[in-house]
Amino acid sequence: MKGSYDVHVHSTHSGGSSSPAEIVSMAIRLGVQNICLSDFGAIDPSQVDSLLEECKGFSLNVFSRADISPKNKQELAQKLKYFRRKVDLVTVDCSTEKICHFASTNKFVDILTLSPTTKTPVFTELVARNCAKNRIALEITLTPFIRYYGKIRAKLLRVWGKILSVALQNEVMFVIGTGAFNKYELRGPHEMQLLAKLVGLPQDLAKQSLTETPFNLMERRTLERNGKIIMPGVRIIDEERE
């Protein structure tokens, strides 16, 4: 599904204050074409289909995403095994450098998220190299840049400036999400692009992070789930010919 993506939105199922239907209708109004609801780490995986059903009938594609916040390597492996085949995107919240490192070496991870209060050392050169090698994207969450102002926003911009310079040097992929907890924290694709540029992402990369990168991540996982990928680099393109 091409078009613009907002890869990080919360509804009432994961601590947000707007229902999935409210989120979806606001996203349509703002011109977003695809959104990923981050509720799937918080709900029972058996409810995934019913939640996606709730969002059907709108002219926008809704994808499922699970946010994992593991405390150690074992918990990370355990949660990845649990969620990988159930949702479209799996993201890992990197609270420590160790978690960040483990997550960046795991090919089942799609996106790394850094908490707004994170310090630069969490996202090191090594993590950046691993991310680039394993095609794991780094998410730029925009809500903190909208919600806070003054000293806090200045500090956030400084920290993210450093993170981006490490990521850009190592050619890490980026995705952009609002991380909205209510429908008024959503933004349109043009506004998201402008805010990402404010954080320090070059314009062409900001555009790519809103459209191409999330599309490629989704496509890769969809093919894997349908059994079309035999091994990395080998994929079935025409079953009938077999």
Binding site: F145, I146, R147, E185, R187, G188, H190, E191, M192, L194
Partner: peptide
Amino acid sequence: LEKVQTAMAAVSSIDNRPVIIHL
């Protein structure tokens, strides 16, 4: 222009009410 647009996108509330400025 771009800076003004960015600042407009960053507005989150007006008169203490949550708001989106959609360009």
